[in-house]
Design a protein around this nucleic acid. Structure first.
Length: 427
RNA sequence: GGCCCCAUCGUCUAGUGGCCCAGGACACCAGAUUCUCAAUCUGGGAACACGGGUUCGAUUCCCGUUGGGGCUGCCA
């Protein structure tokens, strides 16, 4: 049987990180089985749909490389189809009108949901359902509801596996009943557990804590300079594991190993610290040319390739770029008072830097090796350790005590600026 | 409230009755290395929620308790 799965978001807001993982798991399963990944936009709630939101979904999937094979289909364009299907149920006597809405005659017997992840789930009827198990499939305004269009589309699109969030598990008996009402066997279900905040609360863009609210949206990771490969890799590891102690691994490997039954049944918490670590791993593994290309949007216009290459291995996020490179592009860089205090408190500092400037004035060629040799020679001559020159020099030219290799930094900065900064600096 | 799902270090996880006084990763701590930071290397602390069973033997099976999550809409 040819596997067909789908990602069916509704374009009513931002792209939630949990939805992204659902999309990812569908994509992984399609690629693992050589099946088809369908994208379907569930835009039946006309009051909440926005064009912007649709854009966000499409851009997000593209950014992550989760390419679909079919679609996007739009439910808003399939109204006639739903209409026909409603008529079919009414004609069969399985649906009826009440208070202007059309309701489906739900069976009172408990329905077993065979789930590839949760196992066989049998749901007893709730008190409310005991009173009246039927549910609305078409609102009194004429619009069909989620449960109905979802089932009709899965049926029409011949979806074989429904991989979705566990929040849908309790509603699945309704869906199964609808499939049967149409005389069709339901697809296989795989309900994946939820992703929660570190503190166990729901990830939501409306979280009162702004830091937590940011984590809920994929957009945050794009803006902060995470690599799509890193986000994708981290998400793979939430509820799924290669079981061989690997964590950073190419997506091709995940595709090879991924399968539904081994997905964990318990909720996972989202640890952005680990994601950030993983991003650093991916960043450092990047070829320099590729890094420079990806770094440009974050460089604030200062994208000298030599400078970018110099700080490549220092970053965990691309958005950290400006704080690492600022002093390369302006002579008005801030001095960290702690750094000045720590490295430039010796009374001889000004004198030493003046001598270093003198020595560097004649350095040729202006490259890291020459600058290193020259500095060490001066240190010997002054009878001090190289560190007594290195640290003040670093602070003088960059304002900071931390940064790239000093000599390479000086080489990129260039003779004129280095000499000027050494001479202007007064401890 | 009712119904459903879940429960291994702080977090993500390995573990399907003895190989486990529980392994890996992030984070944390200490040391090594280095011109600083980062990276890297070495070492360390850190978990089977609780109570009953079943069994010669339970992290692993069953029941209960507690805790967490979900559903309970003419939202999706």
């Amino acid at each position: 049987m040819n596997v067909r799965v789908r990602f069916a978001p509704s374009p009513t807001g931002y792209l939630h990180i949990g939805s992204v993982r659902t999309a990812l798991f569908n994509w992984l399963y399609a690629r693992h089985t050589g099946g088809t990944f369908v994208l379907r936009i569930e835009d039946t709630d006309t009051t909440r749909n926005t064009e912007q939101s649709l854009r966000t979904i499409l851009d997000g999937l593209k950014w992550l490389g989760l390419n679909h094979d079919e679609g996007p289909y739009f439910q808003s364009q399939r109204a006639e189809l739903y209409q026909r299907r409603v008529q079919e149920l009414v004609a069969k006597g399985l649906a009826y009108e009440r208070e202007g809405a059309i309701r489906f005659k739900m069976t009172r017997a408990p329905i077993v949901v065979p789930d590839l992840i949760a196992g066989k789930v049998t749901r007893e009827l709730t008190d409310r359902e005991l009173q009246d198990p039927d549910f609305v499939i078409v609102r009194s305004d004429g619009n069909p509801v989620f449960h109905f269009v979802n089932v009709v589309d899965d049926l029409e699109m011949k979806i074989t596996h429904v991989i979705r969030g566990e929040d849908h598990l309790s509603n699945t008996p309704k869906h199964i009943a609808l499939f049967r009402a149409f005389g069709v066997e339901p697809p296989q279900y795989a309900h994946i557990p939820m992703i929660l905040n570190l503190d166990g609360t729901k990830m939501s863009k409306r979280d009162p804590d702004p830091a937590k609210a940011r984590l809920a949206s994929l957009q945050t990771y794009v803006e902060d300079g995470y690599l799509p490969e890193a986000v994708r890799n981290y998400l793979c590891l939430l509820g799924w594991s290669p079981k061989d102690n690997r964590d950073v691994m190419p997506i091709e490997e995940v595709v090879k190993l991924f399968d539904l039954p081994q997905i964990l049944r318990s909720n996972a918490r989202f640890d952005v610290t680990k994601l950030t670590w993983m991003n650093g791993e991916y960043l450092r593994a990047l070829p320099t040319a590729r890094f420079i290309e990806l770094a440009k949007p974050f460089s604030g216009g200062h994208d000298d390739p030599q400078v970018l290459a110099l700080v490549k291995d220092k970053l965990k996020l691309l958005k950290e770029l400006p704080e690492h490179t600022g002093f390369f592009f302006t002579d008005d860089y801030p001095f960290d008072p702690e750094a000045v205090k720590k490295s430039c408190s010796a009374p001889e500092t000004n004198d030493r830097l003046a001598k270093l400037a003198e020595s560097y004035a004649g350095a040729s060629p202006w490259d890291a090796a020459t600058l290193e040799a020259s500095l060490k020679a001066l240190a010997t001559q002054l009878g001090v350790k190289p560190a007594a020159l290195i640290h003040p020099c670093r602070v003088a030219v960059s304002g900071k005590s931390a940064g790239p290799s000093l000599y390479h930094m000086l080489a990129v900065l260039g003779r004129d600026r280095v000499l000027a900064r050494l001479r202007n600096f007064q401890a």
